[in-house]
Amino acid sequence: MPVDEHALRELLDGPAPAGTTSVTEVVRLGKRLVYVRVARTSLIVVLVVGMVAGSLNWLQSAPMPPAVLRSVPTEVDWPRVDLRPASEPQRLDGGEVEPLKALYRCPVSGEPQVGYGEVSGALLGATRTAVTRVLPKTKIGYWDAPTAGITADLDLTDSDGVGSLSVRSATFTGSPIAAADALAFTDSNCEPPKRHITEDGTVVQVYPMVLSEPIPTLTMRARIFRPNGLLVVLEVRNSGSIHVRDGTERQPGRPTLPMTELQLAQLAVWVA
């Protein structure tokens, strides 16, 4: 037989051992191959989805910059007044419950006296409207003026309990800034208040939270010094009308104030 490429065709002929492969076996192996491919594809999909989900989870749990993490700020970003208290800090015994303990006071003496007068209905109306806007989720009570109209109280109730807001008004002489400086530590606060001056020259000061005695009561105030000589004091307390016994004695109230420093600042700007 010559070496002819066409002779290669004869290799298909001739004796051959009987085949041992059955179609049943091929189908069985083929189905298993399909199953393996599907399982492999599913595993890859699961791994990819898992990696994506894990990455997202990691990103969500990763530490964020403070500005992002604190999505609901509680403090106003106004600058503090550049003044120092006249006296040394004295530690108060506020008990063992935070935040009543570790509070200090810096007693003041010789500060100018202001004469408080009756709070006008217009001021009370404007203040209550402002409260509804600043605290949309808080149940707001009605003004109660038990002390001859000099102070008006308003209960503020939320999930933490009952607190209150009181309003007083007085007059001062001199410029708003000078009056604000003179009363910068009138709450016996050791840290200077934060100050904001509006376009018309009204000075708004938010004071640090202080502890009133003898019954420990948390108090935070904002003072508004208008150019016309009117002083408005907004006082937030951790107690409400339900905590007042025998008309004047105030019992310990809720553990926190009913509004944050930022909310008090917003309220003061509304009222100013």
Binding site: G19, E25, V26
Partner: peptide, 22 residues
């Protein structure tokens, strides 16, 4: 004809038909 071995030829053919079935 490719491999010169009947056992391997059987295996190659079987594997090929399995892949075709898949």
């Amino acid at each position: 004809a490719l491999c010169g071995n009947w056992s391997l030829a059987e295996e190659l053919a079987q594997e090929s038909f399995v892949k075709v079935y898949a």
